[in-house]
Design a protein around this nucleic acid. Structure first.
Lengths: 263, 263
DNA sequence: GCCCGCGTTCCGGTGTGCGGAACGCTGCTG
DNA sequence: CAGCAGCGTTCCGCACACCGGAACGCGGGC
């Protein structure tokens, strides 16, 4: 958290994350500039990481890019998301039923990471990709995840997060957001219309693991135009049911809350 | 290359790779044992990596597992595989045509890493998963990739790799493998029957990028029983054509070899 | 209760990683 | 063609960041 010793490792981690910008490949000098480190330090980091296969050097340009081992590690993470197995067919069913793009997201810090998705078959579709990171406060998935997060987590988020304004509809006041989250918690689903990007709407519901803890959110995203055409209540019901279907596959049963743990 | 200074970073990398065993979560002591490091060192590594989101601690067991950032990074790698976009529909077409599981693999060191795949619809199917690592010398994809690799790479591989025997049909003699690779190079495709596992057969062909360099292999895998039923020539032709289709999408044109582009 | 294992913390000495400067190279540009 | 301005790479010596070992509090099982 606050303390992160091993600055070399921290630098290595930051170096890797620099590649999240999805640029094809990055050079030593460029990286040194972005990280605020000396060229030699960056070069040493890169050769070390290259020896381990985490990055590789483009033999033509001399630049560096992420290595296949990183891909491999990423896939290893995916495997542990029983989520992936549990959500697969439900996502397909949800897309079929609504005709829109569907996603599964998990909370990581102040962001939502999409871990799975299926795209709408409409020509005008919401484009998402797995591994993409989006803010909590202006997405339906984010609101669901934060609404059902443990209170300390939620309060710390509200206290520390910068609620960046993306559009005129973005909730940027912590108190306002707190109230919105309470509503979400009460009714069991969240929506977000024009809050992150004008013209984009989404609706999401929670996914619970066997202990009943909300570990992910499932939702759909669509152009506002089509979104408006569907009765909100009905759509919410569909999405909530999808969330419950996934939860059930993860071992959650609504009747028998079994096991200790709050509630 | 051989020298990897920054041993802390090396340790961090090895630590991450320890999670490739796909165990749910690993403890500090266990990791310390596997890596041959002190507990305190491992603990420091883990807290540092956790601060960066590369690993996370299971609040219930106290153990550690890979974090969502790793997943994110993995997905970032996938994006750069134009391969992924190029191969998608071709994989589907190939599966439809052959009815068998299809994969795309890339060379990484002495291994092949599957970066994409589609499974057969047969009940008895070859099971693969993306991110999985398999040996070069006893797989059709591996043989294709090594056959078309630059000669120094190939020779170094033949000189240094340990050609582990998996079955009685595995090629374990470097000279024998060298001859096999020459054949592959000459005819443009490779097969492997009972070489990695009894009862499993596969056939693969190269994928070239815009410069004509072989960057990946596309292939199918099937039970030997079904494999035998299809005329080998015809099957090879189908797979080779699939490889050419992907290569064309990557900008490779057989007639007009390499061309300088952009600036 | 005991003990063994866990994850965590503390500390001091040493060997390691840092920044700065210099190298050879390539591709511009005048 | 010389000059230059980038690049990736290498070298070096001092400062201090990291390693190992030992000790802590805790929880679960003979």
């Amino acid at each position: 958290m606050s303390d992160a010793p091993l600055q070399t490792v921290t630098n290595a981690a930051r170096l890797l994350k620099a590649f999240l910008t999805r640029e094809e490949s990055l050079g030593v000098s460029e990286l040194a500039r972005r990280l605020g480190l000396g060229k030699s330090a960056v070069h040493r980091l890169l050769t070390t990481l290259a020896a381990e296969g985490l990055v590789e050097q483009d033999p033509h340009t001399g630049g560096y890019r992420l290595g296949l081992v990183v891909f491999e590690l990423g896939e290893a993470v995916r495997v542990h998301m029983d989520l992936h197995a549990a959500a697969g067919s439900v996502l397909a069913h949800l897309r079929e039923e609504t005709g829109e793009s569907t996603q599964v997201g998990m909370l990581d810090g102040h962001d939502v990471v999409y871990v799975d998705r299926l795209e709408s078959s409409h020509a005008l579709r919401l484009f998402t990709e797995t591994g993409r990171r989006v803010p909590v406060h202006c997405t339906s998935s984010g609101k669901v995840l934060m609404a059902f997060a443990p209170e300390p987590v939620r309060e710390r988020y509200l206290a520390t997060a910068t609620l960046a304004r993306h559009t005129e509809h973005t909730l940027t006041d912590p108190d306002e957001l707190r109230r919105a989250l309470a509503t979400v918690r009460a009714r069991g689903w969240a929506d977000a219309v024009d809050e992150r990007e004008i013209g984009v709407a989404s609706l999401a519901a929670p996914i619970r693991d066997a202990r009943g803890v909300v570990v992910a959110a499932i939702g759909i995203g669509a152009p506002v135009s089509r979104f408006r055409a569907i009765p909100r209540k009905r759509l919410a019901r569909t999405v909530v049911e999808a969330g419950e279907a996934v939860s059930r596959r993860l071992g959650w049963s609504e009747e028998a809350p079994l096991l200790e743990k709050e509630s």
